[in-house]
Amino acid sequence: MNLVNKIHFNKKLYSLKSVETTAEIYQEFARFKIVNGKKYIDIEVDITDNEESSEQIIDEFKNYALLLNINHAGN
Protein backbone atom coordinates (compact mmCIF):
# COMPACT_ATOMS: atom_id res chain seq x y z
CA MET A 1 0.00 0.00 0.00
CA ASN A 2 1.29 3.44 -0.91
CA LEU A 3 1.12 6.21 1.67
CA VAL A 4 1.20 9.80 0.51
CA ASN A 5 2.33 12.35 3.07
CA LYS A 6 2.83 16.06 2.76
CA ILE A 7 5.63 18.18 4.20
CA HIS A 8 5.75 21.95 4.13
CA PHE A 9 9.05 23.78 4.56
CA ASN A 10 9.09 27.53 5.15
CA LYS A 11 11.41 29.11 2.59
CA LYS A 12 12.78 31.51 5.18
CA LEU A 13 14.26 28.51 6.99
CA TYR A 14 14.80 25.85 4.32
CA SER A 15 16.42 26.47 0.95
CA LEU A 16 15.11 24.73 -2.16
CA LYS A 17 18.61 23.37 -2.82
CA SER A 18 18.78 21.71 0.60
CA VAL A 19 15.34 20.13 0.13
CA GLU A 20 16.29 18.85 -3.34
CA THR A 21 19.56 17.41 -2.03
CA THR A 22 17.70 15.69 0.81
CA ALA A 23 15.16 14.26 -1.65
CA GLU A 24 18.01 12.90 -3.78
CA ILE A 25 19.47 11.14 -0.75
CA TYR A 26 16.14 9.70 0.40
CA GLN A 27 14.89 8.71 -3.07
CA GLU A 28 15.69 5.05 -2.39
CA PHE A 29 13.07 5.04 0.38
CA ALA A 30 10.33 7.12 -1.23
CA ARG A 31 9.27 9.18 -4.22
CA PHE A 32 9.23 12.93 -3.75
CA LYS A 33 7.33 15.58 -5.63
CA ILE A 34 8.64 19.04 -4.81
CA VAL A 35 6.56 22.14 -5.48
CA ASN A 36 8.35 25.44 -4.99
CA GLY A 37 5.59 27.73 -3.72
CA LYS A 38 5.75 31.41 -2.83
CA LYS A 39 6.18 31.00 0.92
CA TYR A 40 6.58 27.24 1.35
CA ILE A 41 8.27 24.36 -0.41
CA ASP A 42 5.59 21.67 -0.53
CA ILE A 43 6.64 18.07 -0.79
CA GLU A 44 4.52 15.06 -1.52
CA VAL A 45 6.14 11.93 -0.20
CA ASP A 46 5.02 8.64 -1.70
CA ILE A 47 6.22 5.73 0.40
CA THR A 48 5.61 2.06 -0.35
CA ASP A 49 5.94 0.85 3.19
CA ASN A 50 4.11 0.54 6.48
CA GLU A 51 2.88 3.61 8.33
CA GLU A 52 5.43 3.46 11.14
CA SER A 53 8.51 3.37 8.95
CA SER A 54 7.06 6.00 6.61
CA GLU A 55 6.71 8.35 9.58
CA GLN A 56 10.33 7.71 10.49
CA ILE A 57 11.50 8.36 6.92
CA ILE A 58 9.63 11.68 6.92
CA ASP A 59 11.10 12.68 10.30
CA GLU A 60 14.60 11.75 9.15
CA PHE A 61 13.99 13.70 5.94
CA LYS A 62 13.00 16.80 7.93
CA ASN A 63 16.05 16.52 10.17
CA TYR A 64 18.44 16.08 7.24
CA ALA A 65 17.01 19.11 5.44
CA LEU A 66 17.36 21.16 8.63
CA LEU A 67 20.93 19.97 9.13
CA LEU A 68 21.88 21.06 5.60
CA ASN A 69 20.42 24.49 6.30
CA ILE A 70 22.21 24.78 9.64
CA ASN A 71 25.53 23.89 7.98
CA HIS A 72 24.85 26.30 5.14
CA ALA A 73 24.12 29.07 7.64
CA GLY A 74 27.61 28.43 9.08
CA ASN A 75 26.51 27.09 12.43
Binding site: H8, N10, K12, L13, Y14, D59, E60, K62, N63, L66, L67, N69, I70, A73, N75
Partner: peptide, 22 residues
Protein backbone atom coordinates in the same frame (compact mmCIF):
# COMPACT_ATOMS: atom_id res chain seq x y z
CA UNK B 1 17.06 35.19 16.78
CA UNK B 2 16.92 32.58 14.04
CA UNK B 3 20.64 31.69 14.22
CA UNK B 4 20.34 31.06 17.96
CA UNK B 5 17.34 28.77 17.44
CA UNK B 6 19.22 26.86 14.71
CA UNK B 7 22.31 26.49 16.92
CA UNK B 8 20.18 25.14 19.74
CA UNK B 9 18.43 22.63 17.45
CA UNK B 10 21.85 21.47 16.27
CA UNK B 11 22.78 20.50 19.85
CA UNK B 12 19.86 18.04 20.05
CA UNK B 13 19.54 16.94 16.42
CA UNK B 14 21.03 13.49 17.06
CA UNK B 15 18.41 12.75 19.74
CA UNK B 16 15.28 14.49 18.42
CA UNK B 17 13.42 15.21 15.20
CA UNK B 18 12.89 18.90 14.43
CA UNK B 19 10.74 20.95 12.16
CA UNK B 20 10.84 24.73 12.15
CA UNK B 21 8.38 27.24 10.82
CA UNK B 22 7.79 30.98 10.77
Amino acid sequence: PRDIVLKTCYVYIDRMYFQLDI
